[in-house]
Every structure is written in structure tokens, then in C-alpha cells.
């Protein structure tokens, strides 16, 4: 039998227009766009994403990188990697783009309450976790210890420099560079090298985002350090086209759709092969 009609029969493929109000250079290849929504509000939960439409170029999914309290603006941090993201770098304040969303399942924030929160981000993966970091700071009393372990390759690759200084006041921020310059005084090496120096235990939940290959090695290392795979959450990346489970482009091993069952997954619910390449 056929399913019932969707409430309101809204066409989920049609984006809503937004305009860019500021463009901030985060690093050589990374920019943060601040988008203004007109006459509508976007209420989202950290971990959800939007489909950004560049007129004439196409659509791509990006995690929202701003506070959920501000429903009239959203931030998207975008690194120049493909065709669409290169076009994004030519955008200027005043340009209009379209967004669809919020889409996907967010972080289960209620399950994090009262626990130690470890946020592991590598490279541009921090953009997908920024809304969670902001949430943790805004609701600092809900959590026990909050640690951000941020790994980048070069010193120039570090994004959110202003925010990181701000965040250090309320949460524990650890930055490590795998290809650090000689003058770098902080930690060196990969994020997995420094998990041992953190206090990890049964009451810790971890949120991880990075490149696919790195994420699976981080998940492995976290399990070795005593965090159960049921307490590790990863935010996966796939090039979803529709965002509503119809195009089948984002299916991961196990048959789950990243767009509707994710992008946030519990490592226990998916195979490690689903994370990596």
C-alpha cells in the first residue's frame, strides 16, 4: 500500500534564499560564510547539516558551524576542495545563495549530560563540531570535563584562531600539529599520539570528525583507551545529493543513509569500514 502524503506537501527539493553578510578568511584555503536568513528561522541541533545551493553551480552538504541560539544567522566553514567549494571562495558579502535544511540526525545531546565530553577534530573536521563546542560552552554546567583535541597539519591550517582563544577560558583546548614549524611550542604529532595524556574513562563520550581515514584510526585508538564504541560518535562525510534519502548516494556499509540516519553515527552502530575509505 502506498504511504500517506507528507504533511503540507512541501517540496523538499526547493531551497530557501539567504544572503552572505560576512566572509571571514580562516586560513589560506578556508573561509567562514555568515548567512542571513530573511523572514524565516532555522532551528537546528548541533550535528545537523544544510544543503548549500550555489546558483548555477550545484549543491553540497555542510555542517552548521554556529550557535543554535542564533536562529537568524548560520555560519558555514568551507575549505576549498572541489568544484563547488572553489566557487564558494569567490563569493562576496551581498551574494545570495540557497539553503535547504536543517537535515540529518544531530548529536544525542541528552545522552552527553553529566559526562566528560571529548571532542576530537582533525583538519576541517572542526567545522562539523563547532556547533557542539559552542553548545558545550553555552551549557557548560550540563557537562563534566569538556576537552577539545584539535589536530592540524601545518600551523597555517589552524582555523577559528579567535574562537580557540575564547574557548580556552571555559574548556580544555589541546592543539597538536603533525608538521609543526620549529618555533611551535605546543604539542606535535597526530591526535592519536596524545590520547594517552588525557583522562579518559568510562564516563567519557567522544565526538569525532576528520578525514575518513583519520576518523577510523581515531575511533580505534579511543576504543583502545577504554571508551566503549557505544560512546564514540562520528560525523561522516558523503556527497549526498538530495539530503532526504532518495538519491542513494550516501549509503554506507550496513545500508544506512548518511543524510537521514546520520551524519552523526555511534561507532557501535556502524562498521569501522563504513568510516574509512
Amino acid at each position: 500500500m502506498m504511504a500517506k502524503a507528507v504533511a503540507g506537501d512541501v517540496n523538499p527539493y526547493i531551497p530557501k534564499p539567504v544572503t552572505i553578510i560576512t566572509v571571514k578568511n580562516e586560513s589560506l584555503e578556508t573561509k567562514t560564510l555568515r548567512l542571513k536568513l530573511y523572514n524565516w528561522r532555522l532551528s537546528f541541533v548541533p550535528g545537523q547539516f544544510v544543503q548549500l545551493l550555489l546558483p548555477g553551480v550545484g549543491e553540497a552538504p555542510f555542517c552548521i558551524a554556529s550557535s543554535q541560539l542564533d536562529q537568524k544567522h548560520i555560519d558555514l566553514t568551507i575549505i576549498r576542495r572541489g568544484i563547488l567549494t572553489t566557487s564558494v571562495h569567490y563569493l562576496r558579502p551581498g551574494d545570495a545563495v540557497g539553503i535547504r535544511g536543517p537535515l540529518g540526525k544531530p548529536f544525542p545531546l541528552d545522552a552527553f549530560v553529566g559526562k566528560d565530553l571529548l571532542i576530537v577534530a582533525t583538519g576541517i573536521g572542526i567545522a562539523a563540531l563547532k556547533s557542539l563546542i559552542i553548545y558545550a560552552i553555552e551549557n557548560r554546567k550540563k557537562f563534566n570535563d569538556v576537552t577539545l583535541l584539535y589536530g592540524a597539519r601545518f600551523l597555517e591550517d589552524i582555523v577559528y584562531r579567535d574562537e580557540l582563544k575564547e574557548w580556552e577560558k571555559s574548556i580544555n583546548v589541546v592543539i597538536t600539529l603533525s608538521k609543526a614549524p620549529p618555533e611551535w611550542r605546543g604539542l606535535r604529532g597526530r591526535v592519536t599520539d596524545h590520547l594517552g595524556s588525557l583522562r579518559l574513562g568510562k564516563g567519557t563520550v567522544a565526538a569525532v570528525c576528520g578525514s575518513p581515514a583519520v576518523m577510523s584510526s581515531i575511533a580505534d585508538a579511543l576504543v583502545k583507551h577504554g571508551i566503549s564504541s557505544g560512546d564514540i560518535y562520528v560525523s561522516l562525510e558523503r556527497h549526498m545529493k538530495c539530503g532526504i534519502g532518495k538519491c542513494a548516494r550516501c549509503i554506507i556499509p550496513g545500508g544506512k543513509h548518511v543524510c537521514i540516519d546520520g551524519p552523526v553515527f555511534r561507532v557501535a552502530d556502524i562498521s569501522i569500514g563504513a568510516i574509512g575509505e
Binding site: 526547493i14 534564499p17 548555477g56 569567490y90
Partner: peptide, 25 residues
């Protein structure tokens, strides 16, 4: 859209946003 083709590819340009959203899809 107000996209135009330039010698270096596609250029997307919309009117500057002051006040209500100038562009409707």
C-alpha cells in the same frame, strides 16, 4: 540567477543585500 559567463568561468553576482533579501529563488 544573475550568473554570467566570464573569461575565467561562471560568475555569480547578486545585488548587494541591504534590507530585505534582494533575491528570491
Amino acid at each position: 540567477s544573475t550568473a554570467t559567463i566570464t573569461s575565467y568561468g561562471l560568475k555569480i553576482r547578486f545585488p548587494t543585500a541591504e534590507g530585505p533579501c534582494p533575491v528570491t529563488i
